[in-house]
Design a protein around this nucleic acid. Structure first.
Length: 951
RNA sequence: GCCCGGGUGGCGGAAUCGGUAGACGCGCAUGGUUCAGGACCAUGUGGCCGCAAGGCCGUGCAGGUUCGACUCCUGUCCCGGGCACCA
């Protein structure tokens, strides 16, 4: 019998399961290597062929590293809490725990079918109380710590209390709420419990605060900024509004500097680093106080262009700025209040849609420009954001395009302070040029003016140097059911932490998990949601990213009930060496994880500053969609090449009823399954008509003619396009089907062969045939036509050894640089060569199968045992590469004349320039190109090429 | 608008350091095998001219540097992604 993938793959998957082949433990005698896939959110749809791309790549690397003697930690688990399961539950009445369980079982089945070498003993899901105990624990630690800016580290809140008792907060430099009042030790001691807790809350790393948040009424929850796009929720696409609510936050901004610096030390794709830098949004500048005319009040602004302060001709505050109503004069109050109201009602989406239409109103108040002494009007406008900087700006219309547009619209003065710019039609925003009209900095270049003016600002006590970040603290609560409960209870409305001994605080079972009509979380409906003393517990739950923030740590020691991770485990495994996943997590998960890890490092729970040393983003596998064309207003479908004279609409048709070779539609299947979805008047299914096409040759050219169903030459040809693979486009290819037909080994190889791992590329089911052929050819190196094992113990030839060692070298290099497609090419070349040499020798074929085993592990195991070894090939040793066989005796040099290659010449490898030159000049073909010409230069690049310049 | 990627045969892609462009595979063509289809095997396959030998052109486009450019530089077009009133 010949190669039977079904039998072999089943056999070895069972063996791996029963023997726990990939189970790892701490082993100080071996170097560790931690390879992690971004764990999946198990959706009901299961895996399509695009999902395993990254898993297969990391699996090949894992298996390769094992062969190289590393102790490889390669785990898998499930990110199981979150909105989709709950949304599904609400719509279908299935409890999220039930649907999650079902989906996980399906995912596990599919993953095992691919032959992925996970240590399944470490599997967990984030919705398991044993797991989320440690998510809650980490939250409690964040609640009990503050961030000391001086040490750039989290410290226990007790140290802060001690300092308050000693010196108040006058000498404290902490990441805290900017509105925290200053107080002395005496004042601190005089505060009551409520006041003390309120103040401490301003310092905690996990804290509760009223804040303007993205409220999505349709989902009944608050969303993080990265869960909102263009004013709509990413999940569901529902409108999102800005409202003030009490929320839990993580003080991620405290770590802004460390998050930024850390990026320089890690091996991540440059674009992901760039996205994170952008998101952190560091900018240097100054904070400056502008006094309000005729008042004691001052307005603090942030600017990155203090050099242009002499050109500041007005000020603008965010409409939500707390001083707006204080400074507004009575004759402008009505307008101002109306404007604030107008801004509040607008969703972010509307604001974005109207970027070019500048709006704003005058408050009636004036400020004094501290450098020019001029009275400048104070306006409010929605283009100034409450959350960035201080929520107030000095407007320099000559050198800022937004201020310029505003000044032009409202007729405000424009003063140029940088020489040479033409500001008649637009502002000059560049940071180059000489300062003019600028008092003490006149004549300086912008770059010199900035530090000088900041020095002056500081000297005069007007403000100070300031680094500002665009990043905001992460909102950490969701008004939903299916998430981790907070280990927090309320006494007199003040939040207190549960004792660690009470963890995990388990999510109670509920039947109706819809949010209440008033927008209260589902848990608020539970009478029993209280501590044993009867204090009410926090009713919101943690967001989706909570459970995924430290899961990589938990995999190091997944069943430890006494600690997140044991000291021995973290000491040994330390961090993730290789992390692979989609680029869509560039800011969400990957920022939160880095933050979480840094915090855990500060409290001594982990060792490394950065959690993921190397990151790779696999590309997307796109689908090939097919379309049918329906003539508008009818139930008639017209074939692609004859559709142009009709007014048609194209509709995605299920790719499984279209022949991938020529895109012809299976009309019978179509009538059975698809038609109903596509026609307008469902009662007229019986009237569905088709206009087919047939090819006709006319004057030597092929033309398409319309024809009907009863014409045997007639066919319905579908249109096609490369699109994202998704259920709604009916272009999903299921890995189960592919594996059933071709086997997991072929599937793995084909996914890798499609192209570079980081690149997106279309799935093409046609091509897999070629890969299947290759796998069978590989198998046939070891077997005859009747399936007999035919490997023999004979001495290999020099030629065979050369092919083997070159292949080993190439494959080894390619795996290390993640170039799996070229590694497979190398195997293909080698197999072709061994086939024609009829190589049957153990000394060649045994090393070859070891090297191939990361790619096609099932076949490799089978051959390995036939070669007489004990299973499993997993812990075999990667063959030694012998340099001796990589060297050639001769080099084939291309010989070019004036840069054009004319012929090649075979030269012994040890020939020097003089000998090669001699050979080339004597060569019969050379005369043709040098005849009647002069040789100007002879260029010889050893082992590369020869170029002769003639004239 | 700004910031990253990327444009190579009919298709997926290769060329790792400036040195033989198109490896490997799909598809296609021809032949063998077969009652036939399929499977398998062999050969060919960037374009143009040519029976051939050979020649010319060719990595989005236009220039430049170099003995030599897919690779480096300048400009430009197109495609994909990220950010976008961020002071």
């Amino acid at each position: 019998m010949n190669y039977n993938h079904k039998e072999i793959e089943k056999k070895w998957q069972k063996y791996w399961d029963e023997h726990q082949t990939f189970k790892v433990d701490i082993d100080p005698s071996k170097p560790k290597y931690y390879i992690l896939d971004m764990f999946p959110y198990p959706s009901g749809a299961g895996l399509h062929v695009g999902h395993p791309l990254g898993y297969i790549a990391s699996d090949i690397l894992s298996r390769y590293m094992r062969l190289k003697g590393y102790n490889v930690l390669h785990p898998m688990g499930y990110d199981a809490f979150g909105l989709p399961a709950e949304q599904y539950a609400i719509e279908h009445g299935v409890h999220p725990a039930v649907s999650t369980e079902k989906n996980i079982n399906n995912y596990r089945r599919q993953l095992k079918l691919i032959g992925l070498s996970y240590d399944w003993s470490r599997e967990f899901r984030t919705s398991d109380p044993k797991y989320y105990k440690w998510t809650q624990w980490a939250f409690l630690q964040m609640f009990k710590h503050w961030f000391n800016n001086k040490t750039q580290k989290a410290e226990p809140i007790e140290t802060l209390i001690k300092e308050f008792e000693k010196n108040g907060n006058l000498q404290v430099d902490a990441a805290c709420n900017p509105e925290t009042p200053k107080f002395t030790a005496e004042e601190w001691k005089s505060f009551d419990e409520r006041r003390k807790q309120e103040i401490l809350m301003n310092y905690r790393i996990a804290y509760r605060s009223k804040a303007t948040v993205n409220w999505c009424p349709e989902l009944g929850t608050v969303l993080a900024n990265d869960e909102v796009k263009d004013g709509l929720s990413i999940r569901g696409g529902y409108p999102v509004y800005q409202v003030d609510l009490d929320q839990w936050f993580l003080r991620t901004t405290a770590y802004a500097e460390r998050l930024l610096k850390g990026l320089d030390e890690i091996d991540w794709p440059e674009n992901v680093k760039q996205i994170q830098r952008n998101w952190i949004g560091r900018s240097e500048g100054a904070e400056v106080y502008f006094p309000v005319a005729g008042s004691e009040k001052q307005i603090l602004i942030f600017t990155t262009r203090p050099d242009t302060i002499y050109g500041a001709t007005f000020m603008v505050l965010a409409p939500e700025h707390e001083m707006v109503l204080e400074i507004t004069t009575d004759d402008h109050r009505k307008e101002v209040e109306e404007y604030i109201d107008y801004v509040k009602r607008r969703s972010e989406r509307e604001r974005i849609a109207e970027v070019k239409n500048v709006t704003g109103v005058f408050t009636g108040a004036y400020a004094i420009n501290p450098f020019t002494g001029h009275r400048i009007p104070i306006w409010i406008a929605e283009y100034v954001l409450k959350h960035y900087g201080t929520g107030a700006i000095m407007a320099v219309p000559a050198h800022d395009s937004r201020d310029y547009a505003f000044a032009r619209k409202f007729g405000l003065p424009i003063i140029q302070v940088i020489e040479g710019a033409d500001i008649t039609a637009e502002s000059y925003d560049d940071k180059h040029g000489k300062m003019i009209n600028s008092g003490i900095i006149n004549g300086l270049d912008v770059q010199e003016a900035i530090p000088k003016i900041i020095d002056e600002i500081e000297k005069r006590g007007l403000g100070k140097r300031k680094v500002n970040y665009r990043m905001r603290d992460a909102i950490f609560s969701r008004q939903r059911y299916w998430g981790e409960p907070f280990p927090i209870y309320y006494k007199d409305g003040i939040p207190y932490p549960l004792d660690e001994s009470e963890l995990p605080l388990e999510l109670p079972d509920m039947d109706d998990f819809r949010p209440t009509k008033e927008g209260k979380p589902p848990l608020a409906k539970l009478e029993t949601w209280k501590t044993k003393e009867g204090y009410p517990l926090e009713t919101s739950t943690m967001p989706g990213f909570a459970g995924s923030s430290a899961y990589y740590i938990r995999f190091m020691d997944p069943h430890n009930d006494n600690a997140l991770v044991s000291p021995e485990a973290i000491q040994y495994w330390r961090d993730v060496d290789f992390y692979i996943g989609g680029v869509e997590h560039a800011v969400g998960h990957l920022i939160y994880s880095r933050f979480w890890n840094k915090f855990l490092k500060d409290i001594g729970a982990v060792i490394e500053e950065e959690p993921f040393k190397k990151l790779v983003n696999q590309g997307m596998i796109q689908g090939r969609s097919n379309f049918v064309y329906r003539i508008k207003g009818t139930n008639t479908f017209v074939s692609k090449n004859v559709k142009d004279k009709y007014d048609t609409i194209k509709i995605n048709v299920n790719v499984n009823i279209v022949n991938p070779q020529d895109d012809t539609l299976d009309i019978e299947q179509f009538m059975k399954s698809e038609v109903y979805r596509m026609i307008d008047d469902k009662s007229k299914v019986s009237e569905v008509k088709f206009i087919l096409e047939k090819e006709v040759e006319k004057d030597g050219k092929i033309e398409y003619q319309e024809t009907t169903l009863d014409d045997p030459q007639g066919k319905y040809v579908c249109g096609w396009e490369i699109e994202k693979m998704s259920k709604s486009k009916y272009n999903v290819v299921n890995p189960d089907d592919i594996i059933e037909r071709y086997g997991a080994d072929t599937f793995r190889l084909y996914e890798m062969f499609l192209g570079p791992i980081t690149q997106s590329k279309p799935w093409n089911t046609q091509g897999i045939e070629g890969m299947h052929k290759f796998v069978k050819r590989f198998w046939s190196l070891y077997h005859d036509d009747n399936g007999n094992f035919v490997v023999v113990d004979e001495q290999p030839t020099e030629e065979e050894l050369k092919i083997l060692h070159k292949t080993l070298k190439k494959v080894s290099d390619d795996i290390q640089r993640l170039s799996f497609n070229t590694a497979i090419s190398a195997f293909s070349t080698a197999v072709n060569q061994f086939m024609s040499l009829k190589t049957r020798k153990r000394a060649i074929l045994e090393p070859l199968i070891i090297a191939f085993s990361p790619f096609a592990p099932h076949m490799a195991e089978e051959i390995w045992t036939k070669l007489g070894h004990e299973p499993s090939i997993t812990y075999a040793q990667f063959p030694q590469i012998d340099e001796k066989y990589l060297k050639e005796d001769t080099v084939e040099y291309p010989v070019a004349f004036n840069g054009k290659k004319r012929f090649t010449i075979e030269v012994p490898v040890d020939y020097g320039e003089a000998e090669v030159k001699d050979l080339v000049l004597k060569h019969e073909k050379t005369s043709k190109y040098v005849e009647g010409k002069k040789i100007i230069k002879f260029i010889f690049v050893p082992k590369r090429m020869i170029n002769i310049v003639v004239k």
